[in-house]
């Protein structure tokens, strides 16, 4: 009996803590984004963050995109060949990448590559009192540190995912046409015929939402990191896990809206 009560107490406290953190994070991020509409504008910081977050993730995104397209072509060919519908390979690869795999895999790679370093960097700024130093110089750390990173992920991720899509489609074409011998005209024709603006829009909405999620979660957890070495390590792990799970949950929700 006591054990059951303890369990309820434990679950209740956990739920309360989670709710509190979500609320705290939402407040912090909306405060940050609120600063977007008041001068001074964030020119230079944004460029520096776009460099680190966007350009820094370019190679890994391109590699992931290429291999995703290639493996999709292989797997798709294997399945479609069983029905004698190899000519559909182009549209199968394109739809999978544009609607689903581009946004999700791109966002997950971005979380690992850039999200973790955002959290660690802000956490270390907390440990080394750099955030307090900004505060003492009458500069709001939320505006100076958090806002440019959120905006940078929000801008960079859709661009990176578009690059992922293009590279993935190209790699899928190479494997499908040059390696597996699907007719080039049929491959391209099917791709162009079956992909609609609606599919592209689904992908773009996902990219933007995932970018916002990564930016908000990773900056928030770094900002609120316990100012010790373990605190920053813990925050970084938590940021990657939280962001990844949120991306997958949001993916399901957006997909069900856009079907």
């Amino acid at each position: 009996m006591n054990g059951v009560l303890n369990l309820f107490g434990f679950m209740g406290r956990g739920l309360l803590r989670t709710t509190e953190r979500i609320g705290d994070g939402t407040m912090l991020c909306s405060r940050a984004i609120g600063h977007l509409f008041t001068p001074p504008w964030l020119g230079r910081q944004l460029v520096i963050q776009l460099y680190a977050i966007g350009f820094g993730s370019l190679i890994i995104i391109a590699i992931t995109g290429a291999f995703t397209g290639m493996v999709l072509a292989l797997q798709g060919y294997y399945t479609l060949a069983k029905f004698g519908s190899e000519s559909l390979l182009g549209s199968a690869v394109a739809l999978s990448i544009i609607r689903e795999l581009g946004p999700v895999l791109g966002a997950l790679m971005m979380t690992g590559r850039a999200g973790s370093s955002i959290t660690a960097e802000i956490g270390i700024m907390r440990v080394t009192e750099q955030l307090d130093a900004l505060e003492m110089m009458a500069v709001n750390p939320v505006r100076q540190v958090i806002l440019p990173r959120i905006i940078a992920t929000l801008i960079a991720l859709p661009l990176l995912i578009a690059i992922f899509d293009v590279v993935g489609l190209g790699a899928g074409y190479l494997v499908g046409v040059n390696l597996l011998g699907v007719n080039a005209g049929a491959y391209i024709g099917e791709t162009i015929a079956k992909v609609t603006m609606h599919d592209l829009l689904t992908g773009w909405v996902k990219s933007a939402v995932f970018g916002l999620l990564i930016g908000c979660i990773c900056t928030f957890l770094g900002y609120r990191a316990v100012p010790t070495t373990e605190g920053v390590a813990q925050a970084t792990t938590r940021a990657v896990v939280t962001a990844s799970v949120s991306i997958l949950i949001a993916d399901y929700i957006i997909t069900s809206f856009f079907l």
């Binding site: 460029v47 776009l50 460099y51 370019l58 661009l159 990176l160 578009a162 690059i163 592209l200």
Partner: peptide, 24 residues
């Protein structure tokens, strides 16, 4: 940094444009 970021943005926008024109 500025130049590289500019090139990166252009590449991304080009990719979006390519998708929209060819497939959308």
């Amino acid at each position: 940094t500025e130049i590289i970021v500019g090139a990166f943005m252009l590449t991304g926008i080009l990719a979006i444009g390519l998708l929209a024109l060819q497939l959308g």
